[in-house]
Design a protein around this nucleic acid. Structure first.
Lengths: 211, 211
DNA sequence: AATCACATTGACCACAGTAGTCAATTTCTA
DNA sequence: TAGAAATTGACTACTGTGGTCAATGTGATT
């Protein structure tokens, strides 16, 4: 599938993928512009349609590509022997960050795809989605040891809280990261800061939630 | 300002405001369509431009209107004598919910406006924004008693955590609320559920964070 | 009843931007 | 050197845009 595109050099392929992910993460499917994608990727209109045939194919390719990338990374790098939920969260953050270094807009794209309503692609998206969600995120939290929590603690609420604090920190850095996608040094520095801040909050939560 | 519009009956004025808020909360400034607004508000194109003169004026009017509504509601209804941060959060949630009953898309609109980048309106937005943020949200947390927290607790982290848990719960209900904006009964039931869930999580956090 | 000011309509316009095409050109391969 | 494959970008038919304006409706005042 998409042989011609896959035969491209890694560099060129990534430029195209990143331009497309960016456009589809800033706009919904209907208003995203293939003209802008080719302009940002420095390729011609014709060649994009030579590779993908249609806007719809391009979009579905991107969805498949990103969910697969994420899912494979999770399956490969998550250490299921690690029972501490905080360390597991740190692993997940690490995986996400590594992917974002290559594909800045990957998770913005997936977030947007999750909310996509265009009838042109909604059905296919749901089809992929079911498989993706089952496969990836469930296994990412397999084998967590809940006995590490204080006794009589509402574990569901505790886990929700950890999730929401993680979200909050990510959110806090999202804007700044977006503003510096082209300055690799600053970008990496911000990521370092983000991970450190997460560690501090995890330590804070650990003293509250663990025995 | 906008005299003719303000002389309308409350009902008609609200229908127009709600149609516009909805359109601007689903799309950014550039892609939001005045045609869709007039169609959803059941008014003619001409009269909208008679009231507001331009899309830009309409947008800035909405921003001014919503920030003022929110800010006035906060100032009137927040009880600054209440030192418990959890009760203060419950007050704020109550205020937001009351506003959402009238203007479903109000906070979605403000969120979108916060992220708006169109050069056509960005400057004016910043101008309003500075005044709004100073006025409203700062006073909403005035006079919180931090001595209620456990000793040696990192208070900044504690407050962040409370904020993020609140966000998390709101987020959890957002989608479902959006899906039932036209079924008032179900809408109110969901709001009830949301408030109750928030109470439970606050109780959970209180046992962790308070003396 | 006649007048007049204002509210309201919606067909209409010039324009901007769209997804997709294809003849022409360049580049690669053998 | 020939032929295949990659690549270009001007082009098209089309959709939808913000905004206008002559025409009509409405309600109050004389």
């Amino acid at each position: 599938m998409y042989q011609a595109f896959m035969n491209l050099t890694e560099e060129k392929r990534q430029a195209i993928i990143n331009a497309a992910l960016r456009e589809f993460s800033l706009n919904n499917y209907a208003t995203a512009s293939t003209n802008k994608i080719v302009s940002n990727a420095n390729i011609s209109k014709g060649i994009l349609y030579h590779y993908f045939g249609s806007k719809k194919n391009l979009y579905l390719f991107l969805y498949d590509y990103t969910t697969t990338k994420f899912s494979v990374a999770l399956n490969r790098q998550i250490d299921l022997a690690e029972p501490d939920i905080f360390k597991r969260y740190e692993q997940i953050m690490k995986i996400k960050i590594d992917l974002m270094k290559q594909y800045h807009a990957l998770f913005d794209f997936l977030k947007k795809a999750y909310a996509e309503t265009s009838s042109e692609v909604r059905d296919e998206l749901n089809h992929y989605n079911a498989a993706f969600q089952k496969n990836a995120y469930v296994t990412a939290f397999e084998g967590i040891d809940t006995s590490l929590f204080r006794e009589n603690l509402d574990i569901k609420k505790a886990i929700d809280t950890i999730q929401w604090v993680t979200d909050g920190i990510s959110h806090r850095y999202e804007e700044r990261l977006k503003a510096h996608v082209d300055n690799q040094e600053l970008f990496n520095e911000l990521i370092e800061q983000c991970m450190e801040e997460a560690s501090e909050y995890f330590l804070f939560l650990k003293t509250l939630l663990y025995q």
